[in-house]
């Protein structure tokens, strides 16, 4: 699975990296972010593009699998 590590980056970098990864990937994409608002943004982006996002909390950070 393609993995995007956007932890600690400022907006809108996590979303740009997610968008780029989804464009180039065939299968699911795993996105790591650290802030709650970035988690919401990535989930919403996935939903708006007809994908399913599953989020798990990893300590104080988030792992979102988009498929």
């Amino acid at each position: 699975m393609k993995e995007i590590d956007a932890r600690g980056l400022s907006c809108p970098e996590p979303l740009m990296m997610t968008a780029e990864a989804l464009e180039n990937a065939d299968g699911p994409v795993k996105v790591l972010v650290s802030e709650a608002h970035q988690k919401t943004n990535v989930e919403k982006y996935a939903k708006d593009h007809g994908k399913k996002a599953t989020t798990t909390e990893k300590g104080s950070e988030f792992e979102i699998v988009i498929e």
């Binding site: 932890r7 600690g8 980056l9 400022s10 809108p12 970098e13 740009m16 650290s34 104080s60």
Partner: peptide, 13 residues
Amino acid sequence: ALKQGFSLGRSHE
């Protein structure tokens, strides 16, 4: 600039 890869780098806890 963001499209060209601009970033101020990562923050840490």
